[in-house]
Amino acid sequence: MSETLAVGGPEAPPRPPTPTGRPINRLRLARLRDLALVPPIIALLIYGYTLKPDVFLTKSYLVDTVLKYQTELALVVLAEALVLIVGKFDLSLESIVGIAPAVAVFLVVGQTSMLGAPWPTWTVLPVALVFGALIGVFNGLLVVRFKLSAFIVTLAMLIALRGLQLAIVGGATISNLANRIPTIDNLGSLRILTVPLSIWIVVLAFAVGVVVLGYTRFGRSLYAVGGNPDAARAAGIRVERVIWVTFVVAGALAALAGLMLSARLGSVAANQGSGMIFTVFAAAVIGGISLDGGKGSLVGALTGVVLLGLIQNVLTLAQVKPDQIQAVNGLVILVALVLARMTSGKAQD
């Protein structure tokens, strides 16, 4: 399990026997870890307010200028969080964000007669989801059956899917989708109780995720498999199946995120999703998901997304030049990581 040496550093923590009867403390600490990012989020909100006091803290600004742009990222982070918790990696998620809507849209409005296209417009959603799930099936096959490293498998998959997407979209952009496909139009512009549909989807997805991870045997088995696969297997968990299902779910979630992104932009670009995976990992890790597996919570991951979204927004408000924003963003992510590490580290003790 652990790969530490006996002669770890002086900081190697001793394992004190835990006195009994402090359940409340423990619960509180666990919650604290989830909410470690709340103080920086509040700080950013205050900072944003000082930059633009007239609009920043209004609902319409926060919803339409900050959160709406994070919905796709949030779904992919959810997907990646599941895969990380089960102890694996999935780099190909960002390419699914591009390829799944590309394929689905192509079959509906593309200049092709392949597979009996054009397909009816309602197929966009199911086709995208199924396509994403199938890629998860394939990833799972290679990782579980052939026991290949998830990192390399999904890296290769990422490259292959990028190429496929270029071939489909042809270096151009399939645009003007909202007028041609009602599903996409709805995804992009429908509002429920004045809040965009995409935000509702994210809230619902995370709510379901939290319930499944916290309150079902399957969800708990994700943590067990990620934490110690041998122990999980010994306890009767079908380790391979759990991993496989996770890859499939992650693929479908990424596909949904891709469709939402296309809907927001009204188009599928040749490079849709490209480079997203870095931000995904940053948000997940800042949110307390461990790259070693078996650790982290979805609430934490969501706070990671919100934090990154706010940072980006505030940087724009602070008039950081566009050509510098990426460098600053990277720096800020590093600082956020350090801060998250420090706050959660304290909460652990």
Binding site: S2, T216, R220, N228, D230, A232, G294, K295
Partner: peptide, 28 residues
């Protein structure tokens, strides 16, 4: 012989791994 507990999970969950008692709605 080899320890087979999941370090990150609580003692309670380790004791009842994959057979956690269920309550309402089939949730744990």
């Amino acid at each position: 012989q080899k320890p087979s507990v999941v370090g990150e999970l609580s003692v309670a969950e380790n004791l009842f791994l994959d057979r956690q008692p269920r309550g309402r709605f089939g949730l744990l």
